[in-house]
Design a protein around this nucleic acid. Structure first.
Lengths: 216, 216
DNA sequence: GCGTAACCTTACGCACGAGTAAGTAGGGTG
DNA sequence: CACCCTACTTACTCGTGCGTAAGGTTACGC
């Protein structure tokens, strides 16, 4: 009719449309017809290029996840101090989410609630948690050299802490995704305060216990 | 056939079954037939007692949310110190999630990803965030009386912090829901350390800034 | 200028699952 | 014992939406 476009271009248009529709409707309620229509193409083209609904969703997932990872990795200088690395990573992360709210909703909500894709996502997530845990450990080692550590931490503790931090970040990101007016930079600052001050205190061996308010 | 049971009993059986199926399959993929079968009853009974699929899901949501709220409220002594209140609340919260993993998955994942129910859930969540924010503020006032505060905090800061904490807790709870072996008590301890030590440091006016590692 | 391959369409089959109509059986009350 | 109300069933209708068969059209190589 109007324009005949090469495959690669159409594929991106389809993925754009799919991410939008999946984000707004949810995986099941999203219809292939609506995705096709929004992409300005007919349904069989979607099947021809990107396969059935599952495969299409996975393609969305992978594209968005890759973009996110690249954005974060691109924002971090590996030679910087741990807190600077964290700060730059968080800035890049929240900036990305702020700019790709639909993508984030697909990644974080849809993929998670569909048992079929939860595994795929859990894997990506686990990698991030490990990176954060490694960052914490490196910060800890650094602090140890400065002679500030009082409680030796076990690997599981780093992992659990990293899990909690990642969860907190996701939660803030999720909030950001639904609040058009929120500034990603400010969200990142909040997260950084939240994480670093707490982490620093923890790394100095301060521990909360049930019997008294604080020790260390 | 076998047993004729009073309505109230059947309703609970149906809700039990519905929570399980919604949790395992997701809202859309869950079929009324499967729910009915698992409840040991035929489909029209479900419609007769609890209405259409939407209403059934909402009924699940409300039952689980109410139970959760009651469990947490029952665990907290309002006269205790803020950190003790928090500790008891977290203990009750994680204990509940550990004991009702299916219910938690329905609340946290399904409701969230279905735009139709997201609003309902967001309301419940907002109430929790407000409670946590109030707890933080009361802790802050208490600290202020002790003359430890150096940076005056604005209401938005409490809210954002509360949001991050709630997100971290949800994230840990979500992890707990998927890990049969994890002990809820330990999860609560981790969260408490994470929250309280960080919060205490923040309340003492320690702030992270981009230019230097720390101030205060 | 003509084949052919890539791009693109309309129009359908078909399964699955929500919701219902119509009717059966048990147990309490007169 | 006749009544009736509540618990319960089988056996359907019908919409919705995934996936496809079969065919049309543009661009490009030779």
């Amino acid at each position: 009719m109007l324009k005949r476009l090469p495959r690669v271009v159409r594929e991106q248009q389809m993925l754009d449309a799919a991410v939008k529709v999946f984000s707004n409707r949810g995986f099941h309620a999203a219809s292939m017809d609506e995705i096709a229509e929004l992409a300005g193409i007919s349904k069989p083209m979607v099947y021809a290029y990107l396969g059935a609904k599952d495969e299409l969703f996975l393609a969305c997932l992978q594209r968005e996840a890759t973009r996110l990872m690249e954005a974060v990795a691109g924002g971090v200088r590996p030679t910087a101090r741990p807190d600077e690395q964290l700060w730059n990573g968080l800035r890049a992360f929240f900036a990305f989410v702020g700019a790709h709210r639909d993508g984030w909703r697909v990644l974080y909500r849809q993929a998670r609630s569909e048992p079929r894709f939860a595994g795929e996502l859990a894997g990506m997530r686990a990698r991030i948690v490990e990176v954060v845990a490694a960052l914490l450990e490196s910060a800890c080692v650094q602090a140890d050299l400065a002679g500030r550590i009082r409680t030796p931490a076990r690997p599981d503790d780093f992992l659990a802490m990293a899990y909690a931090y990642v969860g907190a970040a996701e939660s803030l990101a999720d909030w950001l995704a639904d609040h058009e007016e929120e500034d990603p930079e400010q969200t990142a600052t909040r997260m950084m305060n939240f994480v670093w001050v707490g982490a620093d205190a923890l790394l100095q061996g301060r521990v909360w216990r049930a019997d008294r308010s604080q020790a260390g």
